[in-house]
Amino acid sequence: MRVTLFTIGMILSSFHASFAFEVEDHRIYTAPMPTQTIRVISTADIAAFDPLIRTFQSINQGITVDYTVASSTEVMAAIYEEGAPFDLVISSAMDLQTKLVNDGFAQRYVSSQTAQLPGWAQWQDQLFSFTQEPAALVISDALFAGLEIPKNREQLIDLLRVHPEIFDQRIGTYDVRTSGLGYLFATQDSRNTDSFWRLTEVMGRLNTQLYCCSGAMIDDVYQGRLALAYNVLGSYAENRLAHEPGITIVPMQDYVTVMMRTAFIPQNAQYPDVAGRMIDFLLSKPTQESLVETTGLPSVFDGASDKQKALRPIRLGPGLLVFLDRLKRQAFLRNWENSIRQE
């Protein structure tokens, strides 16, 4: 079947104007003979999700997809505070997604597809994982010439201490104050190892650059502005690496945090059934099998955990709510700021 789809890009509709959350990107995939329009809010770039949406539309005729891209904290704000009427919420910030579900913003969805998900990949029949994405250390091949590549965080700390001349102002990581995913990775690090705080202090002493997004960090590593980027989304880096050499994704042997991209149907969804079909589509065998090829995102069914024993997937569940606690977050950010900003 030939699918003729046209995109109407970059139109910030009046819909968004009525809300305060910040939109990064927006595109409407109009179906030839539209009968329903589902609104999707997601943290994934249009470029990454584009093929998925088109395939979805070719299977489900007459459904126009209104795709809004926002950062995970803005997604949280849109749903939690403003009650924006979306039909499907997709985000990489598992903790925020968990909080939204826990606090009753999601609705139940059960289908033959969701039933096939392993228990750890879904929560309460409301939150469904469809990718498994590791956090990675990405280094610039050019700037690391002659240096030994660290195998774990202790070696990384040693390396940074020994070569301040190389790494000063050339380390990048998430600004955990603004990036939901960065906060998730950092808090999981703090749980997993005691050396996290030492690493943060060392990085602070070397005037680490703070970023909003993985894409920007990877760009800067390619361009030589950064020697290394810590806690970058590995899937993004691998995508770039497939097209262009110049960086190396370092396999950490102490542990690798693995994030799962999750989706849920909000309580106030207009077309929960269509959103359910979208979830089924995301979890379906053909989609999952071609996920890496089409979007660069590793499948949730991928046996990634077999390849590397150090993988430590973040578990869905109430534990994720802990670092969202106001006091806990305040304390964590205060510690982090004290470590990373050392004038």
Partner: peptide
């Protein structure tokens, strides 16, 4: 300082909201 286990232990036997 909310202990991590305080809430995570509630997720061990069921998927209930906390």
């Amino acid at each position: 300082e909310l202990p991590y286990s305080a809430l995570s232990m509630l997720g061990t036997i069921s998927e209930d909201r906390v």
